[in-house]
């Protein structure tokens, strides 16, 4: 063949190939894998990569969303639309015990609420379906304790992460073998950064939840952070009046626990520009990370994603 174009492998293409390789390893080695779909930008990139990895087959695992009942409305709409368009299977799970006790971030506090509605819910769902591998979109650049996370991260039968007792990981030779009840959390985006994710979204034209873009939204200011009034369940403090502000989100958690930033960024390019110049980290809008310093590490030990 003449005049063919041999593609130069840029760093984004190398990251893409690496992630595809990782997902194919899970499909080949795990008995019953599941894709933890959080509907955020990282999940959107990961889902796009999963579609690529197995094409023309569909991804050989179901998607699963842990619904805390306090997710942004737009996020849930986006989730259902995406899953419908792609024709994929979605497992939705909410902690029934939490619903019965009306667990919410206000009466229980962010920490207990997150434990019950996110961590416990996740573990319930994993056990119910007896999944032995769970694929998620966490990245090493998100937080210090995640820099030491393996790509294939072993969890005991009690779902514990033991940072001092991880399996050595060399080359791309991942050890996915587990005993009864044990499992592996798999992070195909380990080596991606927040900027890589946005560059890839731009390059591949991947749809994301509109909340990532600036728009006029009803918000209240609490301790210097903009919290969106996504529905009438958010208890307003005495004298508090929602106001319309141009804001967007860098990360999407539960709406009462995720702060917005002031922004008019309307395009992915705008977001990349803001990310380049910002001096605040991506997870700074996540209120639960900052209880105390080892906080995310502690949550991860207990089974949080």
């Amino acid at each position: 063949m003449q005049g063919e174009h041999v593609m130069k492998i840029t760093h984004l293409r190398r990251l893409e190939s690496e992630s595809i390789f990782i997902m194919r390893e899970v499909a080949a080695e795990a008995r019953k894998p599941v894709f933890l779909y959080s509907v955020g930008k990282d999940s959107s990139v990961l889902l796009h990569l999963a579609i690529k990895a197995f094409y023309p087959s569909k991804p050989p695992f179901p998607l699963m969303h842990i619904d805390t009942t306090w997710k942004f409305k737009e996020l849930i709409e986006f989730r259902d639309r995406t899953v419908g368009q792609l024709g994929l299977i979605l497992i939705k799970h909410t902690n029934p015990e939490g619903v019965r006790r009306n667990v919410n971030p206000f009466d229980y506090g962010p920490s207990a609420y997150t434990n019950i509605m996110k961590t416990d819910a996740l573990l319930q769902a994993l056990e119910m379906e007896r999944f032995d591998a769970a694929i998620g979109g966490a990245r090493r650049d998100e937080e210090k304790s995640r820099a030491k996370e393996r790509v294939f991260s072993f969890r005991t039968a009690a779902h514990c992460w033991e940072p001092k007792n991880q399996r050595p990981e060399l080359w791309n030779l991942y050890n996915a073998r587990v005993g009864p009840g044990e499992s592996i959390r798999v992070f195909p985006l380990s080596n991606w950064t927040e900027l890589d994710v946005w560059h890839y979204i731009l390059l591949e034209n991947i749809p994301v939840v509109p909340l990532y873009f600036g728009a006029e939204r009803p918000v209240v200011n609490r301790s210097g952070k903009w919290i969106m009034v996504d529905d009438d369940r958010l208890p307003l403090l005495p004298g508090e009046q929602p106001q319309m502000k141009w804001v967007r989100f860098r990360t999407l958690g539960c709406y009462p626990l995720t702060a917005a930033i002031e922004s008019r960024a309307a395009t992915v390019e705008d977001i990349i520009y803001e990310t380049l110049v910002t001096r605040a980290s991506e997870r700074s809008g996540r209120l639960i990370d900052h209880d105390d310093k080892g906080s995310l590490e502690e949550k991860k030990r207990q089974g949080y994603f």
């Binding site: 820099a147 001092k164 991880q166 900027l195």
Partner: peptide, 27 residues
């Protein structure tokens, strides 16, 4: 840099950590 609670307290690094950065020329 030292990511885990135990490391910060003991002032040592326990495990391999991977970090990314970018300059104009390379990732």
């Amino acid at each position: 840099i030292d990511g885990l609670q135990a490391e910060r307290e003991q002032g040592i690094t326990i495990d391999v950590a991977y970090r990314s950065f970018t300059t104009a020329k390379r990732r």
